[in-house]
Amino acid sequence: MGEVIVITSGKGGVGKTTTTANIGTGLAAQGKKVVLIDTDIGLRNLDVVMGLENRIVYDLVDVTQGNCRLKQALIKDKRFEGLFLLPAAQTKDKNAVSADDMKKLCEELREEFDYIIVDCPAGIEQGFKNAIAGADRAIVVTTPEVSAVRDADRIIGLLEANNLKRPKLVINRLRADMVKRGDMMNIDDMIDILAIELLGVVPEDEQIVISTNKGEPAVLDMNSQAGQAYRNITKRVMNQEVPLLNLDYETGIVKKLKRLLGLKG
């Protein structure tokens, strides 16, 4: 039986879709059977980030409305046998999918796949409720900014109220140079404020833009720092212990982090 993981954030544009594509591809690269679901109806993006936009025939709404069978709507990835995408509808009514539809869909996919990764739209409206409806666990993405962390806090509250206890945090777009000179909140600051467990930290990295241009997730790029961060996050999703990337902070912080993750000095 597979596991359903939803990627959320509250604030838009902080890296949910990037994180979904990279964790999903990372898991597939580890030999897992994975399906990615884009629930951002009307603003579909996961297809282009994955480089699969030319292969779409059916979408999520077609599946829930019975216009096609689930199998027909799943798009096979170019690179990995076990990786599939269920794209969002681009033109249909945003309310065409209900929370119950999503629950049923996730139950069905669970039978076939090891991991079902759900990319959530920004906000806390129906799209968010749908995205979390069938999930077993949740990942919250934030950037080191006041507004993003604030919205992450709101989302954590909503997740917990909906029985998604103990969501884990991905801090995206961290800039070690700014943290060092005290102009960006550090990892401890954010963990302290949000009081949740850290899943990983992804540095600001232009390779993310380049890989998105090409439609090839950075997790496959052995030279990208963000790619390495996502490879580590992937392993942690699989419950393996991986030390945090050394992004060159003061050693005290790194030590504390390792302690947070249950790793020794």
Partner: peptide, 23 residues
């Protein structure tokens, strides 16, 4: 004070309000 300290303080205060509002 570095701007990250200002950020942290402002966040902590705003979250007291937010958390009180949503429960």
């Amino acid at each position: 004070p570095r701007s990250k300290n200002i950020a942290k303080e402002r966040l902590q205060l705003v979250l007291v309000h937010d958390r009180a509002n949503i429960s």
